[in-house]
Each structure stands twice: as C-alpha cells, then as structure tokens.
Amino acid sequence: MSPNPATGPLIAMHGVDKWYGDFHALKGVTLEVRRGEKIVLCGPSGSGKSTLIRCINHLETIQKGRIVVDGIALDDSARAVDAVRREVGMVFQSFNLFPHMTVLENCTLAPMRVRGTKKAEAEAIARRYLERVRIGEQAGKYPAQLSGGQQQRVAIARALCMEPKVMLFDEPTSALDPEMVKEVLDTMIGLARDGMTMVCVTHEMGFARQVADRVIFMADGAILEEAAPEAFFRSPQHPRARTFLGEILAHH
C-alpha cells in the first residue's frame, strides 16, 4: 500500500490476474500511473484493454493481485468501491448517456445522489463543464437530439462533474463517424493540458503522440511493452507490437 497517498502513484496495479470463467483475461498485470500522467493503452482486439481499465473502477472484479487507487486498496468491500468510484471517471465507447434525461440532468444526477450536492450548485457545476467541452448551449436537449461527437463530449462533461482525479477512456472515438473524431480528441487534449490524469484505450496514434507520457502495449492479457510514444512508434521492441503497428498503419 502506498504510504503517502498524496505523493504515491494515483493508480497502482500489482500482479493482477483476472479470469472470465476459465478464460484468463489478465495475466499478472503490473502498472503504476503517476499523478498527472497520461497513458495510452493499445493492443489487438481481445487483448484485455477494456478489462484492465474496468478493473480500476471495479466494473470487473479481479481474482489475484492488488489495485490501489489514490491510496485506497480496492478490495471487494462496498466502502472501497464507493471511495474509488468517486475519484475515477469513465468514458465509454458507446457514450451511455441516459436517454430519458436532458444533457443537464445527465450531468447533475451523480453529484446530487452521490455527493449530495444541492440542485442549484450541481447545475452550476454541470454548466461549467458543459461550457468546457463547448456544448453549453445544448444543456436542455436529450441525448438522442445530439450528434455522436456531441454525445461523447457530454459524457466527458458528465464524468468531470464528479471532479474525478483520473479519467478512464475506453475507445472513446471508435463509435464515431470520422468527421466527429477530432472534436472529441480535442476535448481530451484540452483535458490533458489542464493536468488531468488519464488512461486512454485508443488506437488514435496522433493523439498518443501528442498527449501520452507512456504508451502501453498489451496482447493476450499481458503488458508486453511500455515506452514513450515516439520510441514506441519508431522502434517497437516486441514482435507482436511491430505486427500490431503495421496493421494499424495499414488502416490509417
């Protein structure tokens, strides 16, 4: 356990193993994320990227190893899970906005129910973050009335309203039409500039180059390579990483 939560790593995963039934999805994963650090996680489909980040906020349980988030040891107790989820925001590939709530209501639900924030204050916070993702004027609309890119920016604002210490992104742009990818990436780049700690599963190599402190490559449930983005893209060490990058470049 990190002795001083204020200076230790924000996320520490040590020897984490995860099985889905008989299927070994994470194999001895060890990863530390410093405060303010931006990590890009990549690897072929089925390599366990989503599983890894979903373990950080306990959307998945692990069977072996240890995860500590902001000094909180993430056991399966409700108290630890609650405490960790307050500090960790997540953005999903499919946005997962609540269709029956307006954009503003999407953003105020958790602060009001989880933090006990008063409605007026929650709305003020929500409007601030909606402005920040440049979607303030859409606050009264329903998710279905927005484009994919706008929905994803609302999803980012919704997570930010809980004022998390780290944001997890699981392929936030893969469900978007190409012309909307940039607006979401720009939002994420802005967030990174403001010092947010981020763990992003993405194959957007331009984003990785621009923002990431470290690129982590996974295959078959294990971390095979970690490097600064330039080094990783220029000279990947592991043969699987080389094959993977070859395929990505062929597609872009």
């Binding site: 609650d82 997540m90 999903f92 029956h100 989880v114 919704r158 997570a159």
Partner: peptide
Amino acid sequence: IHKGQVEAGFALGLHKRDVFRFIVLRPALR
C-alpha cells in the same frame, strides 16, 4: 436495457438502488 446504462451509473458512483430507480426504471417501463 443495455448494460452500458447500468455500468455508466456504477462508474459515476451510484449505488445499485439509485441505478435502478433513476437510470433503469423509466426506460424499462417505456
């Protein structure tokens, strides 16, 4: 109801009861 809805609720720190009451129930009834 898509399980992503429930996960989004959990990820925001909501408890199971609130996820059902505020996120799942209305779309389910609809």
